[in-house]
Design a protein around this nucleic acid. Structure first.
Lengths: 215, 215
DNA sequence: AACTGTGAAATTATTCACAGCT
DNA sequence: AGCTGTGAATAATTTCACAGTT
C-alpha cells in the first residue's frame, strides 16, 4: 500500500528527530491524561506551532480544547518512528568505540538490539563481549540473513569504512550509522547517517573563535 | 574588535560543518595548486554554488579562471574554524564511551587534546588512562583553570548530565559536547552540541518503516 | 576559456494568527 | 475557554544564472 492514507505527501527531514524529542517530553512530563503543544514546546525548547505542525503531518490526533491524549500520542509516535518493534543491528568494528556501543544497554531498552558483532582482527574474533560473539567480517552476509538484521553500526578505522559499507550494502541492509570521519557513498535506497565527532569539535572551535574575535 | 572586516553579518549555522567537509575535500583531492568549487562539490556531494557561497561569507579568496589556491584555502578554513591552534578539553565521565573517546587519538592530531578526565566513581579516580589521570569531579574547576581548558565532553549517565553541565558552566567553559540523550539547559553564551545516538537510530527506524509501508 | 562572486529566484522551513472544534 | 489544525506570511537556505576577473 502507498502511504496515502497515513501520511501527507512530503514530510520535512528535520521533523523526524523532533518526534523523538516530543516522545521523550511526553514521558518526562509525567502527564497521564492530556498534554498540550505548549507543554511539549516548553520541555523541548521548540515552539508550540512547530509541535502542532510536525504532528499534523501524520494525521490529526489532538483534541481541541484539551491537547493530545498522552497514551495515544505516545503510541502514535512509536508507530510513526517504527520504535514499537525491535530492530536487530550488526556492529562492525569492535575497537574502543564499538565495544562501548555494545556495552551500552540503553539502546536495548528502546528496542535496538546489537545481536552480532564483526571485526577483522584475529585477536578479537571468537571472543564474546556483552554476550555477543565477535565474528569474522566474512561471515556478515550469512549472519545478517540468519538473524534478520536490518541496521548496521560502523565503527571501523576511516580507511576501512567505505569497503565495510560496501559489504553491508551487499547484504541488503539499507540503514547504516557511521562513526568514521568520512561520508561513504551508498546507493539511493540506503540511508546512512554520519556521526562525525571531529566536525562537532570543529563547530565548537568555530563558536569559541568567533566569540574571541567579537569581544 | 567587531568582526566587521573579516566576516559578513550573518553566517548560516549549517555553513560551519560544511567548511570542515571542504577542508577534508581539499586534502583528499591531493591537489597542490588550485582547486575549483566544482571539484570540491564533487568530493562532498554538495553543489558548486553552495561551496562558493559558503566561502564568500568569509571573504573573497578565489581566483577567477583558476579556482581556490590550495594552500591559502586550507589556511583560511583553519583560521575560520579556529583549528589552526590547540584546544584543551576536559572529559567528564570515564565509562565505556568516555574511555573510548579518550583512547581515540584522531582528535589529538587535529589539535583537540583531552588533557584531563573526571568521574565520581571511586574505583576510577586515581587511575591513569591513556596518560591522563582520572580525577574527582570536585577538582574540575581548579584543573580547568590550571590547564586552560576551553571545551568539555560529557559522557555521563543521563540522570547526572544536567548537574555535570551546570558544574562545567560554572567553571567558565562555554563549549560542550554532550552524549547523553537529553538536552541540557545552558545559558545563552554557552554552546552545547548534543550527540544523540538514540535519535539517530530512531531516524533509521523511521526510514525503514516508511519504506516498508510504501512498498 | 575558465572560473569566482553574487544578486535574484526558487525552494524549504518556521512562525503567525485565527477559524473551528470540544 | 482552551486548545488544535492549518492556510498565509515570514524567514532561512539553496540554486540559478550571469557579469566580471584572471
Amino acid at each position: 500500500m502507498r502511504n496515502s492514507t497515513r501520511f501527507k505527501d512530503r514530510i520535512p527531514e528535520v521533523t523526524i528527530p523532533r518526534l523523538s524529542l516530543y516522545y521523550r517530553a511526553v514521558l518526562e512530563s509525567r502527564k497521564v491524561d492530556f498534554i498540550s503543544s505548549e507543554e511539549i514546546a516548553g520541555l523541548t525548547n521548540l515552539s508550540a506551532a512547530q509541535v502542532r505542525k510536525d504532528l499534523t503531518y501524520f494525521g490529526q490526533f489532538g483534541t481541541p480544547g484539551k491537547g493530545y491524549g498522552v497514551g495515544s500520542l505516545k503510541q502514535k509516535i512509536l508507530e510513526i518512528l517504527g520504535t514499537n518493534r525491535e530492530w536487530n543491528i550488526a556492529l562492525i568494528g569492535v575497537g574502543n568505540l564499538g565495544s562501548a556501543l555494545l556495552a551500552y544497554h540503553g539502546f536495548r531498552k528502546q528496542g535496538f538490539k546489537i545481536t552480532c558483532a564483526f571485526d577483522n582482527d584475529l585477536r578479537k574474533i571468537g571472543k564474546t563481549l556483552e554476550g555477543v560473539e565477535v565474528k569474522d567480517i566474512s561471515e556478515l552476509k550469512d549472519v545478517v540473513r540468519a538473524q534478520d538484521i536490518q541496521m548496521a553500526i560502523v565503527a571501523v578505522p576511516k580507511d576501512a569504512t567505505q569497503a565495510v559499507v560496501n559489504l553491508i550494502v551487499e547484504t541488503g541492509i539499507n540503514a547504516v550509522l557511521n562513526f568514521a570521519p568520512i561520508r561513504p557513498q551508498v546507493p539511493d535506497n540506503v540511508e546512512i547517517l554520519n556521526i562525525d565527532l571531529s566536525i562537532e569539535l570543529e563547530r565548537l572551535a568555530y563558536f569559541l573563535t568567533k566569540n574571541l574575535s567579537d569581544s
